[in-house]
């Protein structure tokens, strides 16, 4: 069985973010990056399948050279191979463009199961996993907190609003977008890290994958016009006093605003 995990490298949660000079993205120089936290659970879920039986785990990521580090980390955790789509033309891809690239890799790999994180820490879009599944014409489940695999299908538990759980069974091949906390993510072992540099990383371009349009892009109709830091307001009010006094004041404020 071949299991593919899509992972995104995002700015480290402690990184200090500044807007770049043309105001369209963050300044990426000299900041630390890490694997999107949702994706780490996806990697763990795939590695559990590998631990339990005969599965090859292939990790896939799109991005510049720095992405190698994220892929090596996943290889250090136990993934077998990596595919790195390293193409400047992929930089401006919108969600559908990214999904097209990932779907092309999945098709080439012949993945039986695709794991992704539910969303990315940086843009919180949640758009790509269902798009990839749709492009590949395979069923998908999002917000997955538990999986149980059998020969031909995977049974999953999904989180619904209000704390309810839904149990769904998907025939393979399928795509599963994992929720954080679904499992306990392992650390890359020291031996695993030392062996990771010997594991294969295939570098691909959009042309290699056959997803480049006449301008060389996968799909980039949605573009980011501007990003900005919200202006600081001065409307915060600090309530002071004992706990009881603070609670009384707080309830008063809520009533004042007509919220109760």
């Amino acid at each position: 069985m071949k299991v593919m995990v899509c992972l995104k490298q995002v700015p480290h949660q402690d990184a200090r973010l500044d807007v770049n000079s043309d105001g369209t993205w963050i300044q990426e120089d000299n900041i630390k990056f890490e694997i999107n936290s949702y994706d780490t659970y996806a990697i763990e879920e795939a590695l559990r399948l590998k631990d339990a039986g005969d599965a090859e785990v292939v990790v896939v990521s799109i991005g510049p050279d720095r992405v190698t580090q994220a892929l090596r980390t996943a290889l250090g955790m136990g993934a077998d191979r990596a595919v790195h789509v390293n193409d400047a033309a992929a930089q401006g891809a919108d969600a559908l463009g990214t999904a097209k690239i990932l779907a092309a890799v999945a098709k080439e790999e012949g993945a039986d199961v695709i794991f992704t994180g539910l969303m990315a820490d940086d843009d919180n879009a949640s758009a790509i996993p269902p798009m990839v599944a749709e492009l590949l014409d395979m069923p998908s489940a999002t917000g997955v907190t538990a999986t149980e695999i059998s020969e031909a299908s995977i049974k999953v538990e999904r989180e619904l609003e209000g704390g309810a759980l839904e149990v769904v069974e998907l025939p393979k091949p399928c795509l599963i977008a994992i929720q954080t906390g679904a499992n306990q993510v392992r650390y890359a072992s020291l031996k695993g890290i030392m062996q990771a540099k010997k594991k294969p990383v295939d570098v691909k371009t959009l042309a290699d994958l056959g997803v480049a349009d006449s301008a060389g892009h996968a799909h980039n109709k949605a573009t980011i016009n501007k990003i900005s830091v919200p202006a600081k307001g001065d409307t915060a009010e600090i309530l002071e006093g004992s706990t009881d006094e603070i609670v009384t004041q707080l309830v008063g404020k809520i009533k004042e605003l007509g919220l109760l």
Binding site: Y187, A196, K197
Partner: peptide, 15 residues
């Protein structure tokens, strides 16, 4: 090296 930095990051995360 790259793999030594990976070890450092992983251990730091654990610590």
């Amino acid at each position: 090296s790259e793999s030594q930095l990976m070890i450092r990051d992983a251990v730091r995360r654990f610590v």
